[in-house]
């Protein structure tokens, strides 16, 4: 081998691992997630329907803010029906499936997720014409003393089920209004060291969430353990008149952190908020 080739070969050896670390891969998507959630569907990788925002470096892997922004307003003719979120390399990659409606106004969604390790976060949108599009962001979850669990479980446990809505001042009738829904819940992952059986604690998380305004649907969600403790969602609804914004949710406890075959239903919760535009 001539020397220049050696040099190139060495350079390649040096660069390749850097590339491998610098971005995610589609292995989990191609081998598991696509067939599990979208069998037989054609999914286009594109930013034409939704954009995905996530920090390149997750400062706290237990609380990684993620935002999906839609590229158009919801209307009867053209709207986003569903958005799925996944963290590829999490032990249970499914984050949630969020259903939107023409009445949602805008199919934007901001939430906080747990990211176990360096991973792609992936959002898939289905529009009302039956088409699917996907976008993704690579996130580096920091190491050190960080863990994607949550800092103070007992505090979260104490106020379990407490709900807060936050709306901006000066919302206008008929215009999409941004609201924040905060639910206090430890959203336990059920990940623990089995060797220390005295602390086997099953997962305990919110699995269903339904938001309505005057009984019309705004957002329906199936969610899982990748949602951070004290789930926090920002989304739109359209207050066409004074009324009641309502969040209903249930929680569940499952035997295994990574299987949903054996689960016990938990509680049902409901909280309303009076809106007067």
């Amino acid at each position: 081998m001539h020397k220049p080739y050696n040099a190139i070969f060495l350079l390649a050896l040096m660069i390749l691992p850097a590339i491998a670390v610098a971005e995610g891969d589609d292995i989990t998507w191609n081998t598991v997630l696509k067939s599990q959630f979208f069998a037989g569907k054609n999914i286009e990788e594109s930013n034409a329907v939704i954009d995905l925002d996530a920090p390149y470096r997750a400062e706290d892997p237990a609380i990684v803010p993620v935002k999906v922004s839609s590229k158009f307003a919801q209307s009867k003719d053209k709207y986003i029906k569903k958005i799925w979120l996944f963290v590829d390399k999490n032990p249970f990659p499914f984050v949630g499936e969020f259903e939107f409606f023409p009445e949602s106004g805008k199919a934007d969604l901001a939430l906080r997720v747990r990211v176990n390790t360096y991973s792609d976060i992936r959002a898939v949108a289905e529009t009302n014409d039956g088409k699917f599009s996907m976008t993704k962001k690579f996130v580096k979850a920091s190491g050190g003393c960080s863990a994607p669990i949550g800092a103070d479980l007992d505090e979260a446990m104490k106020r379990l089920g407490k709900v807060k809505f936050r709306l901006d001042d000066g919302i206008q009738s008929g215009q999409p209004a941004l609201t924040q829904l905060m639910i206090s819940h430890p959203n336990l992952t059920g990940m623990q060291m089995d060797q220390m059986t005295r602390f086997i604690r099953k997962s305990h998380f919110i699995d269903q969430l339904k938001v309505t305004f005057n009984d019309k649907p705004v957002l329906n969600a199936k969610i899982d353990i990748a949602i951070s403790a004290d789930p926090n969602f920002r989304f739109y609804f359209v207050p066409d008149k004074a009324g009641e914004l309502k969040a209903e949710f249930t929680d569940v406890s499952c035997e295994s952190p990574t299987s949903r075959n054996v689960c016990n239903k938990g509680g049902s919760y409901s909280q309303s908020y009076t809106v007067s535009p």
Binding site: G143, A147, I149, L153, Q192, M193, M196, R198, F199, R201
Partner: peptide, 19 residues
């Protein structure tokens, strides 16, 4: 402490070799 070791241990151990 034992609970914290149980809930975080797997995560810490899983990344020790790499980090």
């Amino acid at each position: 402490l034992a609970r914290a070791m149980a809930t975080r241990g797997d995560h810490y151990l899983g990344r020790a070799a790499e980090l």
